[in-house]
Design a protein around this nucleic acid. Sequence first.
DNA 1: GGTAGATTATACCAGTGGGTAGAGTACTAC
DNA 2: GTAGTACTCTACCCACTGGTATAATCTACC
Lengths: 247, 247
Amino acid sequence: MSKADKTSAARMESDDTSSASPWPARNARHQDRHVKREAVIRAAARAFNARGYYNTSIDDIAAALNVTKPTIYYYVANKEQLLLQCILAGLERVLEPFRKPRQPGRCAREQFNDMIRHYAQAIASEYGGCMVRAQDLGLGPESMAHVKQLKSEIDQGIRRLLQDGVRDGSIATDDVKMTAFALAGALNWIAHWYRENQSMSAAEIAEAFVRFFNLGLAPRNAAARSPAATPRRRRAPRSRPAARSRP
Amino acid sequence: MSKADKTSAARMESDDTSSASPWPARNARHQDRHVKREAVIRAAARAFNARGYYNTSIDDIAAALNVTKPTIYYYVANKEQLLLQCILAGLERVLEPFRKPRQPGRCAREQFNDMIRHYAQAIASEYGGCMVRAQDLGLGPESMAHVKQLKSEIDQGIRRLLQDGVRDGSIATDDVKMTAFALAGALNWIAHWYRENQSMSAAEIAEAFVRFFNLGLAPRNAAARSPAATPRRRRAPRSRPAARSRP
DNA sequence: GGTAGATTATACCAGTGGGTAGAGTACTAC
DNA sequence: GTAGTACTCTACCCACTGGTATAATCTACC
């Protein structure tokens, strides 16, 4: 009885939400398989973010889609695969800027800042939470190896960008490795507190982070501030016009 | 049979480790109850860090102490309590510097830097992992409320320190809230990659972080570099730190 | 050496949830 | 209409693990 209650409650709830499910009512279910599989993975990611991986049963995910458990298993082999897909979706998105070729015209710090912006947006996506918690959840050894490899690729990408900056003089740091760890930590942690429809958009958060990373906390004299404070003037983030008060 | 194998394996392993268990052989077990309870919590924290909360059974923790499950339950009410104790141990340690009174002689940034050092050390402790992952693990509502309150206290402490710095001119930031999030993220994330007997000690990591937080990545002129990199001089510039010479 | 209290082990229960077998249903093609 | 395919459901299994009842054991103290 408790099971039936839970299921029907979840069903009603998900009927209300506007996050459309490809299983609209009970008929007309001849859509593309790929679309449905994507929907399963998205629903899983949302559920994992909301309740945590181990507190989310396959039944929960199924209920959120107006479907029963075997349907989930029709699209995905097992729960671990489901998690892995969420993680990979997030990681791949973060990796994008590292994989496309370097633009020659711009200094490393500008490219670095763009990377930070992209990273922050990816983390704020629904797959960000899964990605960030990936290490803790019990992935099998082969999946874990895959994830670790991609994470390492990200780390190396950050370090390379930092080193390039040190080389062309646009970035100053004496410990690339630790700086990369600090950066990744600050960015990854966004997944722990960011919620949609919050006061700040992901883009605004990214911009605040870029400023902090660039400028640091120790005050600078006014002359030194211009390029770092507003590194991207072409299209400013919506509300906050990046006005930096000076001491 | 697999169970017996697992248990005996864990038993042997823990016999080898030098992390002494208060149940040495089978005799002389008239120690203080408190000591044993502490040992249980420490063992739990280590196990949670190593395998994750949901992948650690009470039997695992018991086996690591050469003991059986009911013994654990003799010292702690349930698994959630065990987790909660680990989390609180970490949080309390982080909170220390925020609770002791402000030293009047030093500028806010110096106190801020000390706080960062303390924070990093606490996160690198064995309770750091539990603390950082606390939000994800399924705590009951009352425990969760307690944890959230302490976390909020930490956040407020960071922000207050930043604001004090802005006020006395030793810290420059235009978004205290985001800066605090970035700082906490970078620090918390240490728990995800730090392992003991690594190349860098926790103190060294903390120092690298302090440098990065203070200086940022955009280059400063050489003259401005030294005071921020080693910001711990006995008496720092009062209102406006070390007028930076410019070229 | 016997008794009380503290401590630990053996053996067990029960809920939960991942995963599956097999039967049905609907749509398409012929 | 009939066969085939794609998809989904009902009903079930079973391993794992949190938690407990109960008995045994150990220590202190008389």
